[in-house]
């Protein structure tokens, strides 16, 4: 296959960027999208140009590192598929392909197609956990979890943290990411003690990072490589609402005698 690529090139976080056109020649339709990028980079290197920087790691759709806006769709045209699992047979020979980084204020471009997604880590640090220091756990079977709850929690926990939801969202909102974690932990009995506190803290951090608000376009669900449902956003809203209505201000200094 022969393809024309229009790729965003940007030397660094502060540098200006622009779309640059490249040819990708003799690409096997069996190659993955990232393998096509590898071939282009080999050619660029050998002719003395700087290769295109792009994030990738596991190349099997689970690490969440790859992040490309392909022809205006996060992770490209196939549903439920991360960029690394997209294969060139999904494109026509001779196609023109636009490749851009995630464009969200909270994800500043590091270089070319690489962005800084540490905002997502900070949302988790704000409350996306169950406080359970190592060693204190009771026997695993002493907490019963219905299969339905475990399955729902797992559906939400499948999030790979790639950021496609925010990239695809017309409002630049990471609500699907935040809602998925809140749903995962809030669905389980172990997650109950911190449930509302978690929702408040994570939503606040989400906003502080500069993500936009959710207007339920639903773009995120279709962009998500794990097809996480926007139902998780409804659950986040509910937990936030209950939290806002019921959480007391935490008192400090009540110390032990």
């Amino acid at each position: 296959m022969n393809l024309t690529l229009r790729v965003w090139r940007q030397a660094g976080p502060k540098a200006p960027g622009r779309m640059v056109e490249y040819k990708a020649a003799d690409i096997s339709p069996e190659a993955s999208f990232l393998e096509m990028m590898d071939v282009v980079n080999e050619t660029l290197t050998l002719r003395g140009d700087e290769p295109i920087a792009f994030d990738h790691d596991c190349r099997e759709g689970i690490c969440g590192m790859c992040s490309m806006m392909i022809n205006g769709v996060a992770h490209g045209p196939n549903r439920g598929t991360a960029t690394c699992q997209l294969h060139m047979r999904s494109f026509e020979d001779g196609a023109l392909i636009y490749i851009e980084p995630w464009r969200v204020r909270a994800f500043p471009v590091v270089k070319d197609l690489c962005v800084d997604r540490s905002a997502l880590d900070r949302i988790v640090a704000a409350g996306g956990f169950i406080t359970a220091a190592t060693g204190g756990a009771q026997d695993a079977n002493s907490v019963l979890v219905s299969k339905a709850d475990a399955d729902l929690a797992m559906d939400a926990a499948a999030c790979i943290g790639c950021g496609a939801c925010a990239a695809a969202c017309p409002n630049g909102s990471a609500s699907l990411f935040t809602g998925a974690k809140i749903s995962h932990l809030g669905q389980l009995p172990q997650g109950q003690p911190e449930r509302y506190r978690r929702a408040l803290a994570m939503v606040e951090q989400h906003d502080a990072e500069g993500f936009g608000g959710c207007t339920l376009h639903g773009e995120c669900q279709l962009a998500c490589p794990k097809e996480i449902s926007i139902d998780t956003i409804a659950r986040m809203h509910r937990d936030f609402l209950v939290g806002a209505a019921t959480t007391r201000e935490e008192r400090s200094g009540s110390g032990v005698g």
Binding site: V104, R105, A106, P170, N171, G172, G212, G213, T215, H217
Partner: peptide, 23 residues
């Protein structure tokens, strides 16, 4: 807030789920 969240627009952006209502 939403406008500020995406200061640089995409050169190409396709909507997949948004309805005429939401848009």
């Amino acid at each position: 807030l939403d406008r500020a969240a995406r200061p640089v627009p995409y050169a190409q952006k396709k909507l997949q789920a948004a309805t005429i209502g939401s848009r």
